[in-house]
């Protein structure tokens, strides 16, 4: 009993940590530009796929990972510069469609380069799985959790201690005021997209040994990240992490105790329930409409 429960919990927390990282990427871009980036999942795909193909070409894994993450960062910048920035007057829905167009484009490129097959990536380390009360914790899960924790701490430090981080925050709060005090908001927005892409691609790399990877893995993972972000409350960093972990655990429990066919249905029902009681998610900011 306990071992079963723990097993589901480990699975849930691992995948939840991934969702949390994707949700943080959403949050970052949402805060900086109020865009919901439907191409967020593609950053994961770029991270995972590039690493796999580079290691396949004989590049050592650490270097492959660095190159993959950098490539995703470049895509993040390009996305902001060439797809989002030129459409600044556009409607919310129009921006959604633009990012969907971008994700189809990126996925198309990936398919062109890497084909449609699933790719397997080895675990980062060959350590034996850890057993706790009969439940197995895969070494890669520890990598996911560890990297996730490090990234969250790094993000917190980035936003509270660095000038660039503070500039992003300032721009998200009031673009005009930020510009007035000399912040180059266009540059800041590009940075936000880049950091978000870096986050996403790192998540994509660490989770790839668990989920496998393919050109279209970003669709569902990206959506789950969006669900997690909305559960937590769009724009809230804490919310993104809590939402991600919650979503992962609930999914794993449903798959374990109820039916794996309906695990996604439960995830999507959860968002409806949360939004029903808290229309701005768990940690979303309350805003007063000004008239």
């Amino acid at each position: 009993m306990l071992s079963e429960f723990l097993q589901y919990l480990f699975t849930g927390i691992t995948i939840g940590a991934t969702y949390a990282l994707i949700a943080l990427g959403f949050t970052l871009i949402y805060n900086a530009s109020h865009v919901i980036n439907f191409a967020q999942g593609e950053f994961l795909m770029i991270g995972g796929m590039t690493t796999v193909s580079l290691t396949g070409m004989g590049v050592p894994m650490p270097l492959a990972i660095v190159l993959a993450v950098l490539l995703a960062g470049v895509f993040g910048i390009l996305l902001q510069r060439f797809a989002i920035a030129p459409a600044k007057q556009a409607d919310v829905v129009t921006l959604i469609i633009i990012t969907i167009g971008a994700s189809i484009f990126i996925r198309g490129l990936a398919q062109l380069v890497w084909g449609k097959e699933y790719h397997v990536m080895p675990n980062f380390s060959r350590d034996e799985p850890i057993r706790i009360f009969g439940a197995v914790l895969n070494s890669q899960s520890l990598w996911v959790l560890g990297v996730g924790a490090v990234l969250v701490v790094a993000l917190v430090l980035f936003f509270t201690r660095t000038l660039i981080g503070k500039a992003i925050l300032a721009t998200s709060m009031n673009k005009q005021a930020a510009r007035l005090v000399g912040i180059r908001t266009q540059l800041v927005l590009m940075l936000a997209f880049m950091v978000s892409a870096l986050l996403g691609s790192i998540a994509g790399v660490v989770v790839a040994p668990i989920t496998f990877t393919s050109y279209d893995i970003g669709i569902m993972l990206g959506l789950k990240g969006f669900v997690a972000a909305a559960i937590g409350g769009l724009g809230s960093g804490v919310g993104a992490v809590v939402g991600g972990l919650l979503l992962g655990v609930v999914e794993a429990m449903t798959a374990g105790y109820v039916s794996s066919d309906y695990k996604d249905a439960v995830a999507f029902s959860m968002i409806l329930v949360v939004l029903f009681f808290m229309p701005r998610g768990l940690f979303g900011a309350k805003v007063v409409e000004r008239v």
Binding site: A90, I97, I100, G101, A102, I104, I106, G108, L112
Partner: peptide, 18 residues
């Protein structure tokens, strides 16, 4: 190239004809 073209056309149309 179908998906690439499709995504590109979609993006460009929405950017230039919001």
């Amino acid at each position: 190239m179908e998906a690439v073209m499709f995504g590109l056309i979609l993006m460009l149309t929405m950017i230039f004809m919001p």
